[in-house]
């Protein structure tokens, strides 16, 4: 069953409340959307409704982190990461143990349109030297990541979806922080995908297998610190690299992989993602429009493999 990673997050955080008395949760008037409401209902004294004051939410959470708490601060990613300079100073440079939880990432939020879509948040957060960035791809992985972050002692950014995601992992999945997660083997090319589009990438690669293209699919849940060794190894083994993300291709996963390969092992690359502002539409309609659905991905992957 498709499940939004924001819901998986909310459920797991509410579970962790019992075992992690230091965990506190902040929201900026979007708790029903971010699903921090699930924690709020169980632990009202440790939930802080800050109103529509994202700057102050970030700073107050930093103050609580500096006085011994483990804050998770929740909003739409574009609203919270959009207050980047406060994150930069009060969380990053201050080394405050705050997890920034940004939901409603990418064009897949649909009808609300560009103002609510985070398409640049990974790019911004990647510039902070001590910011860990994790984007899970399904329910199981999200819950494992939330458990990991509850015990993590550094600034972190957790990027979550509004839309439901199909499972890409089985019951035996173990989350390994900072490690590339190989979902499908292949030797003709490698796809690095992250977040909500991982399943689309996997489906596209499975279809292309039938056409004789043997494409590896790798889920990159930890965007920072990136698994540089694996990225370089996969580039060497396949010779062709594709990145897929519901985010700007500038500075996101595509940018991160390009930077690594440019320095360590220059390789032919195709970055698939957003290259414009978003717009309103149905989530499925927007993925088709921007070429991020299975068919759109297949076409772009085939073009790239035929040309290179």
């Amino acid at each position: 069953m498709a499940k939004a990673t924001r819901l998986s997050f909310g459920e797991e955080l509410a579970e962790l409340g019992a075992t992690h008395p230091d965990v506190v949760v902040f929201d900026a008037d979007l708790s029903k959307s971010t699903q921090s409401q699930l924690f709020a209902a169980k632990y009202p004294a440790r939930f802080f409704e800050m109103g529509i004051q994202e700057h102050n939410m970030i700073g107050a959470a930093a103050g609580m982190a500096l006085s011994g708490k483990k804050p998770f601060i929740c909003s739409f990613s574009t609203f919270v990461v959009g207050r980047f300079e406060v994150i930069r100073m009060s969380v990053g440079y201050t080394e405050a143990n705050v997890t920034v939880v940004g939901t409603h990432c990418g064009v897949a939020i649909g009808e609300d349109g560009y103002s609510q879509m985070a398409l640049e948040d990974i790019a911004l957060m990647r510039t902070l030297p001590n910011m860990t960035i994790i984007q899970p791809a399904d329910d199981r992985e999200t819950k494992a990541v939330v458990r990991f972050l509850a015990d993590y002692d550094h600034p972190a950014f957790l990027r979550l979806t509004r839309q439901g995601l199909e499972d890409v992992h089985g019951d035996d999945y173990t989350f390994e922080f900072g490690k590339a997660d190989v979902l499908k083997d292949g030797s003709d090319a490698v796809i690095f995908a992250t977040g909500g589009v991982v399943k689309h990438a996997l489906d596209a690669a499975s279809d292309l297998q039938a056409d004789g293209m043997n494409i590896r699919v790798v889920n990159i849940h930890t965007i920072a610190p990136l698994d540089i060794d694996y990225v370089v190894q996969a580039a060497k083994e396949t010779g062709k690299v594709i990145t897929i993300e519901d985010h700007s291709i500038v500075g996101g996963l595509g940018g991160a992989v390009a930077e690594v390969l440019g320095e360590h092992h220059p390789t032919r690359m195709k970055r698939i993602g957003m290259q414009s502002y978003g717009r309103s539409g149905t989530p499925a309609g927007l993925y088709e429009y921007y070429g991020l659905d299975k068919n759109g991905l297949k076409g772009q992957i085939k073009d790239f493999l035929h040309k290179s």
Partner: peptide, 22 residues
Amino acid sequence: ASTGSLGQGLSIAQGMAMTAKL
């Protein structure tokens, strides 16, 4: 705390005061 970008330190102080209350 790290300050110098104006406006931010007071929010951090608020958070510390919230911890004391909690």
